[in-house]
Amino acid sequence: YWDTDENDNESGKKPSELFGKFTWRIEKISQVNKRELRSIVFEVGGYKWYILIYPQGCDVHNHLSLFLCVANPDKLRPAVVNKDPKKSKYSDTLHWFWKKEHDWGWKKFMELSQVLDGFVVNDTLVIKAQVQVIREKKSRPFRCFDCTYRRELVRVYLTSVEQICRHSIEERRGKLGKLIEDKVRWSRNHLSREKTEVILKEVVKQFFIEKEVASTLVMDSLYSGLNMLESQSISKKGRAKLLDTEETPDPMVSIDKDMFVLADDMLLLLERAILEPFP
């Protein structure tokens, strides 16, 4: 459920053109006595960026502060590279840049003692930024474009994505639980579909615009989950393929053109929605 440039038929730039990497090597780091250091400007997704660091911290002690700076709506992902790739520190965040808030990052990106432990080699510090510019589309989750980076995110953030999804599902289950007690009120053919755009807007608003979460991976998870629902609605082959490797519950919702449609009897589905174990 993870597609590529070829089947991305949206207008504008291709996904690969919206993603870019920049590596900044700071030599003789121990001799730097400036409060802040700026990288050269680099371009990703049609926007210009630079990295700003405070080697001795920005309003904090004993930390390296690191920020990505620009002047338009985007998302950012900087990392400091350790000589041992497994030890490289990755921090991921989403941010909507605007005129008065053109920089975003971490004041306490890393403790200074940690910086010296493998990150500074031959008096050189390497900082790598991976930037993904997000198309302004509020009614669709978006994916993480870079495969390697995405895998790194899964390693670091999967548990927190689980917590976020669990919290969101359980909150809604609680409300639905009260409804199911009133069985007489519901009949099979009423209130069983809604435009996908209407619901996906709510999804994106919950997870991105209201900033309840600031990780690319949540949006990426929703993106692939939605693709899965679409595939299952279009062809049963996709589902059969999935079942080869792992038992997955039948979808409770299918997609018919631009509508989400409940896939079975309303009360049965409601029970499932409330009682089925968390994935």
Partner: peptide, 28 residues
């Protein structure tokens, strides 16, 4: 590789369940 695939499936399934529960919460 199996662990990566398992994580991928888990991520997709989590996303799918979230979208589904939003459909329910909206419709009801």
């Amino acid at each position: 590789k199996n662990a990566i695939e398992r994580d991928e499936r888990r991520l997709t399934e989590l996303g799918r369940r979230c979208v589904e529960i939003f459909v329910f919460a909206h419709i009801f």
